[in-house]
């Protein structure tokens, strides 16, 4: 990964994404410019269905945008972005492989010998707190444990940038907090560039250096970009009590609220909730 050190880690310029064609054309994302600097942790928040995840897929090379260009570490994205690690929302582990094999395979496909790959995978499983779980199959692990295996699987390749698509979305609140802390402590060690998609504003503020707000779809775009000046290293439970956290939360929620309302528009109006759904 001979990345250009001065170039942005991720750079999207004028990216638009459409699905279908003709009358059934759906414009998911319209004209997004977004830059993630090396070592920067950027969170994207927005109402459901605003196309947050499709932006990640563009950066990953899993999806070709209908307009605009994507660059990773100064190189144009063409095909799968080798320099990127991707953490999916849904279960992405191979169910027929043990936790150890799932992590080791990420090195094996890159040509690392079996014995060495296993040894390093064991070390990574220990780092995510899964020592002693290496021979378990995914169905024998809890949701949080599976996510930690996936995290080790992504990080063992030492990717230059990390793309995360609501990775902790399916987990319960306590597990989410623990996973957030684990992610922060791993990230603190080598500070890779992160693009983290979530619908949870608290999670975004607690984790990121910058929170980008997207408008409701269709044709969603970036409507706000907030710098999170909370001190690091952070502990999620503590940082949530910080007065600055609350100031940021209400500032960003002002931008986000209108879009959430727009996304649910008629449904909320029908329930008579349109006016009173002010503070979170």
């Amino acid at each position: 990964m001979s990345a250009d050190k001065t170039a942005a880690a991720v750079s999207l310029s004028g990216v638009a994404i459409s699905f279908g064609s003709g009358a059934s054309l759906y414009r998911a994302v319209a004209d997004v410019d977004l830059t993630v600097q090396p070592g920067e942790f950027v969170a994207i928040v927005g109402p459901t269905g605003c196309g947050k995840s499709t932006l990640l897929n563009v950066a990953a090379g899993l999806l070709t945008p209908s307009a605009g260009a994507a660059e990773v570490s100064g190189r144009k994205v063409e095909g799968i972005t080798r320099a990127a690690g991707y953490l999916f929302q849904a279960d992405a582990l191979m169910p027929w492989k043990t936790a150890l094999a799932n992590v080791a395979v990420a090195l094996e496909v890159a040509g690392v010998g079996r014995a060495q790959a296993r040894e390093r995978a064991l070390a990574w499983l220990a780092r995510v707190g899964l020592k002693g779980f290496s021979e378990r199959y995914p169905h024998q692990l809890s949701g949080g444990q599976k996510k930690r295996v996936a995290l080790a699987q992504m990080l063992i390749r030492d990717p230059a940038i990390l793309l995360m698509d609501e990775p902790f979305g399916p987990l319960d609140a306590q597990t989410r907090t623990l996973m957030g802390d684990l992610l922060l402590s791993l990230w603190q060690a080598d500070r890779k560039a992160v693009l983290f998609v979530t619908h949870d504003l608290d999670e975004a503020i607690a984790l990121a250096d910058r929170v980008v707000v997207m408008s409701a779809g269709p044709a969603s775009r970036i409507i706000a970009d907030h710098r999170i000046d909370l001190p690091r290293p952070r502990e999620i439970v503590d940082i949530r009590l910080d007065p600055r956290f609350h100031a940021l939360q209400s500032a960003i929620w002002r931008d986000l609220k209108a879009e959430v309302m727009r996304a649910y528009g008629d449904e909320f109006a029908a329930m008579g909730l349109g006016k009173s759904a002010g503070a979170k």
């Binding site: 799968i80 690690g85 991707y86 191979m94 496909v109």
Partner: peptide, 19 residues
């Protein structure tokens, strides 16, 4: 999702077949 993840891990067609 498993397929996309495997691709992101750098698997080529032959490796996708095998794993």
């Amino acid at each position: 999702v498993i397929l996309s993840n495997a691709r992101m891990l750098g698997m080529n067609e032959r490796q996708l077949f095998r794993h």
